[in-house]
Design a protein around this nucleic acid. Structure first.
Lengths: 248, 248
DNA sequence: TGGCAGCCTTGATGCAGATCAATCGTGGAA
DNA sequence: TTCCACGATTGATCTGCATCAAGGCTGCCA
């Protein structure tokens, strides 16, 4: 009965309000037609702020291409990233008008936006959209809680290892990039952004990356390109028992 | 259109799978009748573990009375609380069989359980349940993200102040306990549990509580009973800009 | 071709909170 | 009533990360 179990049929639906694998199975023509009525696209440049916390939001949206971040900021400037938006991720919430976080484009980003009111109407008349959104939100909640363990209890080294492992795992799921057992990743974040994500300073991030490199856990080419000779070793460094962690 | 807006009509529905204020407005007789078929109650004593992480879960449940916690534990014993379950809060997730966290009773707890399969069926045939669950999950996600800011960026003192403020706010929303402008709260957690929630050690929790007391931000009677002479002052100490924080 | 801006690295030092340890207070059982 | 267990408090010391500071590297623009 779960939507997860249905096979995806339309790989190309990157602009649906809900993630490919599930929505595609449900892309009945009439639903798509209705969506067409209420959606539009917007592009943002790398570094641009897409939404300011506290802004009025009269739309919900889905990331088509690029990477965006959700961050919270305290008055004195302390920042904490609370989420990473990847293609097909959803932003905004039905039933609320004000944005709760800053949303910033980390790379160039294309968003597919849906006017809120018609989207809400669509949701009430199309029950499986609510179910799919519920599933996605539960996944995000799990990710957030995994992150709470990281923020509250892990050391700086473990935090870095965890971040690399998570990005690698996600990348692997998408592109299956492997060179004879090695795993290859491009970090989509600057040191400062990683610091904001991990609850560290950028100097500590830099030091710990250097340390992991020195110890042979990862190797670097340039600033961003990482290869992981032994993924299990990395997981050990991350203090991860769950080998099936599903951080988004 | 949001379920939030509907007035609560049945205060007594503490055992519904979804929160009072919203579900009561929707307690159509047939739905309740169907729920009756698939639900049962369980009690747990203070300190008892309700669910172990990794356990098979063939039910979802809602807290009727008492307080339970969600925690994650690393192999070496480091613990992080990732959620607090209060009466009417929901546990478990449709579409997943294994528990992701330990659930522990902090006080004596009564849970109302629903067998998973029939509940899922009910959900697909009763769209507003999925919508309501979505709403609740989004609230929890917001709470988790607020907590990420706390864990990643706040000082020990701010963490304690935030915790007290959150509990006070929630309490106030429920009981409106006020004595001439003062706010009165009972902390439902031991120092160690607070430490697990805040990503601190119990010693640091104790010291910071003493410090806040010394500085007149709060006053204590016994170990648990707190009065807050000036709530705005407390919020300031918490580093909270948002005065409308909606942490569960 | 040089210079500058953005990002990163590395070093020196300081401090918040962890760790280790001793003591206190309270409530329940013998 | 005493004793004990459990939680809380408080002190002394240690340490991991923040902070402050000084370059280094790379790519872009003049």
């Amino acid at each position: 009965m779960s939507l997860h179990d249905l096979p995806a049929v339309h790989q190309e639906c990157g602009d649906c309000p809900i993630r490919h694998r599930a929505v595609c199975a449900r892309c009945e023509a009439d639903e798509l037609a209705r969506l067409e009525q209420i959606k539009y696209y917007r592009s943002y440049q790398s570094g641009q702020t897409i939404i300011w916390s506290g802004d009025r939001m009269d739309f919900v949206a889905s990331v088509v291409t690029g990477i965006a971040t959700l961050t919270q900021t305290m008055e004195d400037g302390r920042r904490q990233m609370v989420g990473l938006l990847l293609p097909s991720d959803f932003v905004g919430r039905p039933g609320r008008n004000l944005a709760a976080y800053d949303v910033t484009a980390t790379t160039d980003v294309v968003m597919c936006c849906f006017r809120k009111k018609p989207f809400e109407d669509l949701m009430s008349s199309t029950p499986h959209i609510a179910q799919r959104l519920l599933e996605m939100t539960l996944d995000e909640l799990d990710a957030a809680r995994e992150w709470m363990l990281l923020l509250g209890r892990k050391t700086a080294r473990e935090k870095i290892a965890s971040l690399v492992a998570i990005i690698a795992r996600r990348d692997a799921a998408l592109h299956l990039r492997r060179t004879k057992g090695e795993l290859v990743v491009d970090l989509p974040l600057t040191r400062e952004e990683m610091a904001d994500y991990l609850g560290l300073t950028l100097e500590t991030v830099s030091r710990q990356i250097s340390a992991l490199k020195r110890d042979g856990v990862i190797s670097l080419e340039g600033k961003r390109h990482v290869t992981i000779p032994n993924f299990d070793r990395l997981l050990e460094e991350a203090g991860d028992d769950t080998d099936g962690g599903m951080l988004v």
